[in-house]
Design a protein around this nucleic acid. Sequence first.
DNA 1: TACACTGACCGCCATA
DNA 2: ATTATGGCGGTCAGTG
Length: 322
Amino acid sequence: MFKARRIIFLTYSGAELLDLIGPSAVFSTANRISGKALYRIVVTSADGGEVVHSCGISIAALPVDEIYPGAADTVLVVGADSRPLVAAMASTALKKCLKTAVIRAERLGSICSGAFVLAAAGLLNGKTVATHWSATMQLSRLYPETNCNGDALYVNQGKLWTSAGVTTGIDMALAILQSDHGAGLKAAVARQLVVYSHRPGHQSQFSDLLAAQVKEDEQFAGLTTWLQQSTSTIISVERMADHVGMSPRTFHRRFVNSFGQTPAKFYEALRLNNAREFLEAGMSIANVACQVGFQSESAFRAAFKSHFGVTPRLYRETWRGR
DNA sequence: TACACTGACCGCCATA
DNA sequence: ATTATGGCGGTCAGTG
């Protein structure tokens, strides 16, 4: 029987709420997609109670001295503007928790300027960290023992994880998720979150994500290139399995494991993605349907609508010639 | 609308 | 004992 990992956020008055919410979305989405309680989110502050964040929204937090970080815990400090940050850096309760975490927890880390709190607790000496680009100079000056990487989205060094700007907390959370539960679940969560955040009707993020996935998995590298090149003819899952020399059942299982989606769905996504380009070039719907391997225009229309949320006609009118 | 057909998916189970 | 594999068959959705 597995035990849920705890993700413990250390927050404080005036902190950046997005630093907390973004990574939380990754972990809670992982729970939902996997259908298991893989992670439990815990919010804690020096004194507990309602914590008012920089945007004015308050969150209920547990007192930090009721939290005993252990082997299944990840402790993350959120960032803030300079004034609330300085107050957090002075908090002995927060520092005490972090010092316990560095010994006992599975991981500890920071989002954005939360790295300053880690540094104040003396935990970043000799470490390489990522922090917000505007704060790297300041961090180097205050803590010369700490090496700041101004380019990285996030940095992982042993059990220490640090991330740059607010939204890179999401990238870091995805990387943590991958190290815990593999690339498949990570990809599924990333896709889910991207789909929610993209502008309706345009999904360039989606194709970037596909490209990234393809690069990541050498086992299927040849296959995905082949599929990408043959989107106008229909390739059955059985033929894909044959192409990589696996039985259909094993192929299906391994594919889902690596990509977080079934082979047929992945292939359909590739074809629909190509369809976007034809539509942007102004090609007729019937022609596009044929070009990307759909038997009929109506089948294509239905698949496109269900995948992107808009009809191909509306998509073409919106994005043609851009 | 009813129907048969097909491919994809996935749980299950024997086996390596 | 544990894990990956691969075949079987039931269910489902899409198609003509």
